[in-house]
């Protein structure tokens, strides 16, 4: 599913036998539902692989396709049509879930382009092996934050109030949240660079994006840790 397949492989419609290409979910001739398309998630929505996506348009398209593909529409159809509807809708849902989220979308596109990404976002956002290392420019702040987190936990264990540390942590949290936002806007810049660039520029943008995703993952793990500690 992660291969970009040139969508020109002709197959025949199971119902009317007219040839069509494998990326279509409905036969262009008889409109009958077809087995899942072999293209990538973008092609499900008839999109070229790209990163700047209007999510409102994507949602609208998702709803339009859902109305046509959903198993509810095929409750009284033949067994094979029901199977196609189930598989097609699973593909549609998987594609929508991936593309509507800016981070998942970026990661998916990078994988599609053959770039190794640190860790799948789909795997619960848990720290990956290499994203547990603090970015060099943040070493000092992270060290300080970890100290504060520890103090806070110790205080909690001892059943003490610690308004000072709490204040420090809240301040640190806001700081790191701002950093996350900065990463997001840098990421959006890279999206545009990638889309506008020639192949060599694309490669560079991809590298930047991988680094930004790693950084973002690291930062959001920190924010979550602070939230957990404050909320406990």
């Amino acid at each position: 599913m992660l291969k970009v397949i040139d969508s020109a492989v002709p197959v025949s419609c199971w119902s009317c036998s007219v040839a069509h290409n494998t990326s279509t979910l409905f036969c262009p001739h008889c409109s009958k539902i077809q087995p899942p398309a072999t293209g990538d998630y973008f092609s499900v929505f008839s999109l070229e692989p790209k990163l700047n996506i209007d999510t409102a348009v994507l949602e609208h398209e998702f709803h339009r396709l859902s109305r046509r593909l959903h198993p509810d529409r095929y409750a009284r159809a033949t067994d094979s049509e029901r199977q196609f509807a189930l598989a097609d809708t699973a593909l549609l849902n998987d594609a929508y879930r991936t593309l509507k989220d800016p981070l998942r979308r970026t990661e998916y596109l990078l994988k599609l382009m053959g770039t190794e990404v640190g860790e799948g976002l789909s795997a619960d956002g848990k720290p990956a092996k290499d994203s547990s290392r603090a970015p060099a420019d943040l070493l000092e702040e992270v060290f300080e934050l970890n100290m504060q987190l520890e103090e806070m936990r110790d205080a909690r264990k001892a059943g003490e109030e610690s308004p000072d540390i709490e204040k420090d942590l809240s301040r640190a949290k806001i700081k790191f949240e701002t950093l996350v936002e900065a990463v997001d806007s840098e990421l959006r810049e890279q999206w545009s660079d990638w889309e506008a660039g020639d192949p060599s520029h694309k490669k560079i943008a991809q590298k930047h994006m991988v680094a930004l995703l790693d950084r973002r993952r690291y930062l959001s793990n920190l924010v979550r840790e602070v939230n957990d500690t404050l909320g406990a």
């Binding site: 809708t89 849902n93 879930r97």
Partner: peptide, 16 residues
């Protein structure tokens, strides 16, 4: 646990 389909995913949903 390695999660392969997150909670609150629209169904039908799949993972390989």
């Amino acid at each position: 646990t390695a999660k392969i389909i997150q909670r609150n995913s629209t169904i039908p949903a799949s993972a390989v």
